[in-house]
Amino acid sequence: MAADSQLIARQPHKPKLAVWKFTSCDGCQLSLLDCEDELLLLGQEVEIAYFMEASSKVEEGPYDISLVEGSITTPADLLRIQEVRRQSNFLVCIGACATAGGIQALRNFADVVEFTSAVYAEPTYIDTLKDSTPISAHVPVDFELQGCPINKLQLLEVISAFLNHRAPQISAHSVCIECKLKNNVCVWVAHGTPCMGPVTHAGCGALCPSYNRGCYACYGPKENPNGESLCHWWEEKLGADRSTVIENLRNFNGLAPHFKVISEKRERGQKGKS
């Protein structure tokens, strides 16, 4: 307890943390509540100033650090994200919705009017934008933490880095590297299972291959991916049909620029150079 109070005393004021939700499933902000062992300690290090899912206490801005979950899909949220940016010193996007539009960005590839009438009998009540877009399409962001959902330990790392004025240590290499680090047998090489691991951002700990399953890219593209080559291999060597390739590029991170370009090419029937 004494050590904790010293930590607090070091800061002129406890940094104010805010958590914002846009269009999303709540899973990424839940990662914060899933930090059972660290949550109470975190509560001593930062002031949880705005976190509607967890607290009815609302502190006025500005906020030192804002975590933003969700994508922008409504006219009202176009304005709200601007206000969040104005109120935030350091803005971190958490999860595939905030960084790449999320699963709901599948609407961007389709006709949203037809979508609305598939779900609602009276589509005229529904106020929605044509596209689902990531936060960075609207305001400058300070850091993006990928994943559907994010890894809670990586989230703690981002918050700690901020508190200690250093850059977050988040590796941008592929899931393949994580498999090697875990001594996993390669599901592709050994079993011929199509796997997105070679182009997918690390962070999950190579979960799917550890469960004998091909990666489905829920962490989005890694740094400098070569998706064209991967798709070529899927089609030519593993016999995957084009719709399977498109489905895997276009799920939770379908709007991530690298995935989007390749899936659209595939849809037009073009193949890039491999």
């Binding site: 389709a110 598939a118 929605t128 719709s243």
Partner: peptide, 20 residues
């Protein structure tokens, strides 16, 4: 904000329904 799951599930593979 509507997310249109029931609409965009159409055309997807049946094996994807649990993950989506």
């Amino acid at each position: 904000p509507p997310r249109f799951f029931e609409a965009f599930l159409r055309g997807r593979d049946y094996t994807e329904a649990p993950d989506i």
